[in-house]
Computed example of a mutant assay.
Amino acid sequence: MGYSLLRRIAVGSGALTVALTTAFGGVAAAVPQSVPSFDLTVALGQSTYNSGDDVTGSITITNTGSTDADGLSLVISNTNLQPEPQDWMNQWYGGRASLAHGASVVLPFRETILDGGKPIAVEAEVQGFNFAKDSNIATAAVIATRGSVDGVLYLDANGNGQYDAGEGLAGIDVSVSGGAPWHSEPAVKTNQDGHFAFTDIPSGAYSPAVDAGLVLPYTTWHVKDQTLPITLEARHKVSDALTAVVALDSDTYAADDTTHTTVTLTNNGDHDLPGITAKCDLSGEPNTLGQNMTGWGDLQAGQGVTVPAHATLTRQVSEPVPAGALSYGHIYLGCLFGQFGAGYEDGAAVSNTVSARVTA
């Protein structure tokens, strides 16, 4: 006996009815099947913000249906806001989220105002297959405010990790960019004590920069409707003093071999270089060494070595041939060495690049 399957999807009611029709024209009893439906709410922390404020809020999603939901995505549209990354974004933006029936999830967010003269809005919609979508929007007013920065730029001559009298850097141009709206302020020059100031600038998030071949830690200044005190440590580029050489112990490896690398760091400067770590696998290719820094010991992120002034330091590194190297026929290694743990991303020393054959 043959039969055909008829489906009727009633999205508005959230019900899916399946009926079996026999070859003789008889209709079996309809079997209702539920589909997910959702309630979504966007909430902002305030109804009015100053232009220098961080905007915080949350998106609450509840599966009000009687069946579980898979393959969910969240689409968010922002007006006059720059979002900050959140842990939940990869899951909910990639269609990989799920939500059991009757369950709720709260997704917090934090965003930066782009223009102090315009209102803000966050709109969100949950999407997927075979269910009624739901969306919601939250808005807030923005008051344009202005503030100031009062700071000192210094070089930590005694290495104690803090500013001391006499360490201020004189005659250095300091500039900032950012704010709401985004713009660049004219550079100001530090006085004999390293002091600098930016007065009456639009509130918002700013990034500083200096000249004279110095580098700054990655930092953001959040200027509000008041004076923000700043103590800013500049450093000489690591590459001004440090040289880095990497050397493999062989020019050919089998696919299941372990590689051994000698890392040689030489400090040609007059001051110790603390907190030196390595960043390798800069290309992201599957045949590069240093992909997860296994075997790199105190050169890994979160640790660090000190290279004394006018001294050479060596480290031995062991790690397996990468799993994807055989299809390429070779491996290679090249690294940056710098004070990344302290936030100084610029000015790192660049090592040589080495390679070796990989055979089955």
Rank of each mutant, 00 (worst) to 15 (best):
V215A: 13
L232A: 10
V263D: 02
V263S: 02
D225W: 08
D257C: 04
L228W: 10
V263W: 02
L242G: 08
K224S: 12
Y253T: 00
T264Y: 01
T231P: 08
D256W: 01
W221H: 10
T262E: 03
L242D: 09
H236N: 15
S250T: 00
T219F: 13
T264G: 03
T220H: 13
V245H: 06
L232H: 09
A255K: 05
T252I: 08
L228Y: 06
L216V: 10
T264E: 04
L242S: 03
P229N: 08
T264S: 05
A241M: 11
T243I: 07
T231Q: 14
V263A: 06
Q226Y: 15
R235K: 15
A241V: 12
L216Y: 12
T259S: 15
K237G: 05
V238Q: 05
L232E: 13
V223C: 03
A244F: 03
H260V: 06
Y218H: 14
P217W: 12
A254F: 12
A234Q: 12
A234V: 08
V246C: 03
T258Y: 13
V238A: 14
A244K: 02
V263L: 07
K224E: 12
L216F: 11
T262W: 07
V238Y: 03
A247H: 01
T261R: 04
A244I: 00
A244C: 01
K237Y: 10
S250M: 02
A255C: 07
D256L: 11
T219K: 10
T252V: 07
T252Y: 01
T219I: 15
T261Q: 03
H236T: 14
T264K: 06
Y253V: 00
V246F: 00
P229K: 02
E233P: 15
V246Y: 02
